[in-house]
Structures are given as C-alpha cells and as structure tokens.
Simulated assay, not measured.
Amino acid sequence: MAPDQVSKRLDGVPVYTVSNHDNEFVLISDSNGHKSLGLFCFRHEDAEALLAQIRDREPGLGRGAKIVAVSLDKVYQLKTEGIAFRFLPDPLQVKHALESRAKTGDPGKAFDGVPVFQSDNLVLRSKNRRFCPIFFSKEDLERALLGAFKQQQKINPALKVNTDIQVGSFEDVLQRLESSDDGSGWGDVVFIPPGMDALSHFSEKVSAVG
C-alpha cells in the first residue's frame, strides 16, 4: 500500500507531544545519549509528564515548551522522512492487552508496541464493502460491540452477546498495511480514535478511505 493510502487511514487519530517556542517537536536523547527521537503519547497526561521532565532537565528549553496534539498521519510522515520517534502507549490499554493475552495462554509480562483491539463480531459495511474497525481503547470496542448486539437483538431477541476480542500491536498493523496489496484485506482497516464513537468516525472516514 502506498504511503499516502496508509496516511489516510491514520488521519484523525490524535497523539500528544512537546514542541518548542518555534513549534518544532522536541527531540529526546536515548538512554545512551547517542540518538535523538521524538516521543508521542496516546494520553494527554503522559505528555504533561514528558513536559515536566523536559522542564526539569533543560529549564531553558522548557520555558517555551508546550504540549501539542498531532494527528497520526503527520507522525507517519516523519517516518517516511526518516525521522526517529517512539510511541508511549496508554498504560491502561497495555494492562488490558496483557490480561487478554493471558486468557489465551500467553503469560508475558511486557507488551511490545501500542496495543490495538478488534473483534470478528464487529464489521462495518458501506457500498458492498466490508470494513474492519481497529480500536486503541478496549473500552471503546466493548461499547461498540454492545451497541451492535443491541441492534441485532431487536431482529433476533435470542441472540447472545459475544465480546470476543483480539489484541495486536499498532506497529504490526502498520507494517502489514505497508506491505499489503488491494486484494489482501488489509485495505479494509479503519482506525477508531480513543473516545470516538465507531459509527460516527466510520461514516466520516469511508469517503477518504474508499
């Protein structure tokens, strides 16, 4: 999939970082002090902690620094330009991901990357196309599943709620999108921003993704 097509799927998903007074992203040195990279947080409060850390370490830089929201498609453009960065996932979603994996027999104590959630029981359709919504929040997916089943139960009252959820990493999905072609099925992925109603966001995205 071409970079511009991948970028369209990321548009509208916010992350947070720290910029200086010139609105340039503040780069952080790694633990060895050899490499500078941008840090992007999925929670505003984590960006606040990052800003406090910068102000503590470099008061001169910190005085003009501020938190800014950036759409994921803009961050993806940094990758295509060769700029190094790292995502800081929501710790609660990491906890959910580890718990979900433990239920499937994977007792790992660490999660590599940003967790994302999906369910085979939640499929969105438009103009004879089938779309797979991928969520950054397990709670958002659970709400969407419950809403979908309530609609189905109006047609079939005997239908049982099924909240089967699969866990993956955003980085892995992104890699699969980049290496996919039109017939692979990965072109049907729609990312749902945290806190966003899935159906509302989907209706806005279909024209851009299609």
Results as ranks from 00 to 15, higher is better:
1 M>R: 12
2 A>D: 15
3 P>A: 09
3 P>W: 12
9 R>F: 03
13 V>W: 00
15 V>I: 11
16 Y>W: 15
17 T>W: 07
20 N>A: 06
21 H>S: 14
21 H>G: 04
22 D>R: 14
23 N>F: 13
23 N>D: 15
24 E>L: 09
25 F>Q: 07
26 V>G: 11
30 D>E: 10
30 D>Y: 12
30 D>A: 07
31 S>L: 11
32 N>D: 14
32 N>S: 14
33 G>A: 08
38 G>R: 04
38 G>I: 11
39 L>R: 09
42 F>V: 01
43 R>G: 01
43 R>W: 03
44 H>C: 06
48 E>D: 13
53 Q>T: 09
54 I>W: 09
62 G>A: 11
63 R>E: 15
64 G>T: 08
68 V>M: 12
69 A>G: 14
70 V>Y: 12
73 D>S: 10
74 K>D: 13
78 L>N: 09
80 T>R: 15
80 T>A: 10
83 I>C: 08
86 R>A: 13
89 P>F: 02
94 V>S: 00
97 A>Y: 01
98 L>D: 00
107 P>C: 06
109 K>M: 06
110 A>R: 15
110 A>K: 15
111 F>L: 03
111 F>Q: 03
115 P>H: 06
119 S>G: 06
120 D>F: 04
124 L>P: 03
128 N>Y: 13
129 R>S: 10
130 R>W: 06
130 R>A: 06
133 P>G: 03
135 F>L: 02
138 K>P: 00
139 E>I: 01
140 D>K: 00
141 L>A: 01
141 L>V: 01
141 L>D: 00
143 R>I: 01
144 A>G: 05
146 L>H: 02
156 N>P: 05
160 K>Q: 04
160 K>N: 02
162 N>D: 09
163 T>F: 02
165 I>W: 03
166 Q>W: 03
166 Q>G: 04
167 V>T: 14
172 D>R: 13
177 L>V: 07
178 E>L: 09
181 D>Y: 12
182 D>M: 08
186 W>Q: 09
188 D>Q: 13
192 I>D: 00
196 M>Q: 14
196 M>L: 04
197 D>G: 07
204 E>F: 08
205 K>T: 05
205 K>S: 10
205 K>H: 05
207 S>R: 14
210 G>V: 08
